[in-house]
Structure formats: C-alpha cells, structure tokens
Write a protein that binds this DNA or RNA. Structure first.
Lengths: 219, 219
DNA sequence: CCGGCTACCTAACAAACGTTAGGCAGATCT
DNA sequence: AGATCTGCCTAACGTTTGTTAGGTAGCCGG
C-alpha cells in the first residue's frame, strides 16, 4: 500500500506491467491519449479497467512511463554512436569526418525512432498536448537528448551562428520525426531515408544525386 | 428547423460564426480537439454551449471548417507564387531559376503557415488524430496541396527518382511544419528561417554559410 | 496448515461530455 | 401591426470517463 512502484528488488514482473505498457504505447499512438479509455486498454491485455491501478497509479503515470522509455531508447542510441566513434580513434581526420559523424547519428536516430515506434513516436505526436504533469515529468530526458544534438552540431558546424545551428537542428528534427507518419517501418526503407536525409542535409539537393541510386534507376 | 446549414444566400453573418471559428481554431490548437469542451469554447465567445449548434451542426463540423479554411489559405499562398512567376516571363532562365522558384514557395508556405497559425497549424498537430469523418472531409483539399508540391519538385528536380522526390518533399514538409511548435511568429523571424531552409535544402550545410549572415555575424 | 503477498475482479461513484428540445427577445419584412 | 426570421438561452438527456473500495483465487514461506 505504501509504494507500488518497485515490488522489492530485481524480480521485475515482466508480464503484467510490461504488457500494459506496450498496449498503452500502441493505443496512445494510434488513437491519442484522451481518446484511449482505460477500459479499452484493459481489454487489450485481457484485464478489467480497475486492475491496472495495481501497476500504475494513474493514467498520467502510464503515459509518463511510455514517454520515458521512448526517450531513453533514443538517448541510448545516440550514446552508442558516440562510443562507436570513440573506439575508432579520436585522432582521425577531424574535419572530413564531420559529415560521416552526422550521418551516423541521423541513421541512429531514425532507426531508434522506427524500431521502437510505439514508444518513441509519442514524443512527436502526443507530447505537445499531454497533461502538464506529464510534460514536466518527461522534460528532463528530452532536454538531455536535445543537448546532445546541440553539442554535436556545435562541433560539426563551428562556422555557423548559434541561432542558425538551432534552426538547423530543429529543421532536421522536423524532417526526421515527421517520417513516423508516412514511412512504413522496415530497416531497408529507414536506412534509405536516413542516407537521403544525411546527404541532403550536408550537400543539398542542387548538385547531382549521389552515385548509389536506389531501386529503379531513373538516370 | 429543416436545414440550419445555409441561412439563405449571400448574407453571411460574419460576427457570430466567425468568432466561434477563430476561438475554436485557437483552442483546438492549444489544447487539442477532445480536450476542448464546447462549454469552454462557448465561454470564449460569450455564448452558452447549446447556442453554437445554431452555427455548426456538430463539433466535428466545427473542426472541419477550421481545417478547410487553413488548407485553403495554404493553397492560395501557393497559387499566388505561381502567378507571380507566370507574369515574370516563362522564357526566363529555366534551369538556374529552379532554386529561386523553390525558395519562393518555401517562403510562401512558411508565411502562410505562421500568418494564419491558428487555422493552418491544425493540419500538423491535430489532423492525424481527428475523427475519421473529419479526415475524410478535409482530405481532398490536402491532397490538392500535396499534388502542387509534387509537381513543383518534379519540375525542379527532374533527375531524381520519384521515390527520392517523395521522400525529399516529406522531409521538407517536416522541417517546415515543425516550426509551428518553436518558431515565435514574426515576419522577420519567419523569413529568416525560410531563407535558411531554402538555402540548406538546395546547397546543403557542408559548404560555407551564405554571405548574408543574420544578426551577429559569427563569420 | 496457515498467514501473507501477488495479481486480478466487481461494483459503484461523481464528474464531464456532446447533443437536443423548446422557448424568447429583438430586428426585419409585408 | 402582425408575421417571420435570426441569434441566443435554459434545462435536461444519456453516455462515457478516471478512479476507488472492497473482495478473492492462487502461490509461497514457515
């Protein structure tokens, strides 16, 4: 009765709470937060509405849990790329590798976004209209991810002003995150889009297309 | 009592219906569709909830009206640019003007988006989760606008494959439309972002920044 | 065998929602 | 002056919602 949050130690009950979490993420994303009733949600996991209060103290807490997991997955993906470049040797070509570093992070962002779509997409579609309690709870994690990208762009585009870098970052995020609304999940498709975004972001679209044409070569 | 839809002929009452429309657009955008109650909305315009059924036959119809106006404004802005280039002479330099045509449309899109933010932003934030009836009603207008951009990109990027053009268009839309969530309205700011997006889209970010640096020149 | 814990269920609560029927003051038209 | 229409109000309806209190079957350590 005191704390429902953690049962005791390591024995994380993975069936009950986890099933609710996944179903909630999916339904929140498909139908929206308010449009999703706890009764429908409970039916998805074979429960009754009131039963879920054993695992989560409120509907808001459920949304917070979903969004926190989503953002954690994104942060992890970012750090994985950082670690990858760290072992590759710092004394590599610093300048010429800038576009490759950026490309790697773009790919990682898009992969993490689509591989865990149910959890991550909520940050794009329903964070904005989420209850204030929810937004405040998840904001630290979001800010952390944003800060990583801000730092990355500062290293990779040192000649741009801060204002321009901010706008470029937000524009890049917009281009990438909007893909959850139209891109059919599938590793191949995601990677192709990632290459296109990275290529276009760095070299633009005015010059001739890169050599590796995809699918049916128009050329 | 038979049909409330159209009063009679041209005498469109502009005070009542219009005030509801504006207030609804603002509240839908700020709080979301379901989160906005007709009672709160009515209070905004100094009415009672039931009174609004004189002007709109349902809450869904209200949202449809808001979204339709928003998309009409976007379409008009697009066509205005087309007309502008038409009078400028068709036999201009076709190839070299491609980037300028694109830049003009990007600026027009962003201006129309932010100048009528209350109406237009709904297509970004709440179309996705709107009731199916609403989405179906507004879809023709949206498709029309999309088709215009598809045609534009086909003329401006003839060497790219259809798949790539689609992805580039969706990416560009994502970058532009996401700005409603962070860009503080103001013609100067909007135009600066428009130039940055157009420049980055065409020439990329890898080369040195364009000569006209904004605000404090980092250079 | 027994007390307690886990994981669920049942039943009900108050509040809020979209929507409707009927009424009513004031302007406009005939 | 009477009729009609416009624009709004009041009051209520049925439904759905998040949430809670209390109960219960099964497992598990002692």
């Amino acid at each position: 009765m005191a704390a429902v949050s953690a049962p005791s130690g390591p024995p994380e009950t993975l069936s009950g709470r986890e099933r609710i979490l996944s179903a909630a993420a999916q339904r929140f994303l498909d139908a929206g937060y308010v449009e999703t009733s706890l009764r429908d949600l409970a039916a998805d996991v074979g429960m009754k509405a009131g039963s879920m209060y054993y695992h989560f103290e409120s509907k808001d807490a459920l949304l917070i849990a979903v969004l926190e997991r989503g953002m954690s997955l994104m942060v992890d993906a970012f750090e994985e790329v950082v670690d990858g470049f760290a072992v590759a040797g710092v004394d590599n070509a610093i300048e010429s590798a800038a576009d490759q570093r950026l490309a790697a992070h773009i790919t990682a962002h898009l992969r993490a976004l689509h591989d865990n779509r149910a959890f991550t997409a909520g940050h794009v579609t329903l964070f904005r209209t989420a209850p204030q309690v929810v937004r405040e709870a998840v904001l630290p994690l979001r800010d952390g991810y944003e800060a990583r990208w801000t730092a990355l762009l500062a290293e990779v585009l040192p000649d741009r002003s801060i204002d321009e870098r901010t706008m470029l970052r937000l524009g890049l995020f917009g281009a990438m995150n909007a893909s959850i609304e139209w891109l059919d999940t599938g590793r191949g498709t995601v990677d192709r889009f990632a290459r296109l975004v990275a290529d276009q972001f760095w070299r633009g679209v005015g010059s001739e297309p890169s050599e590796e044409s995809s699918g049916k070569g128009k050329r």
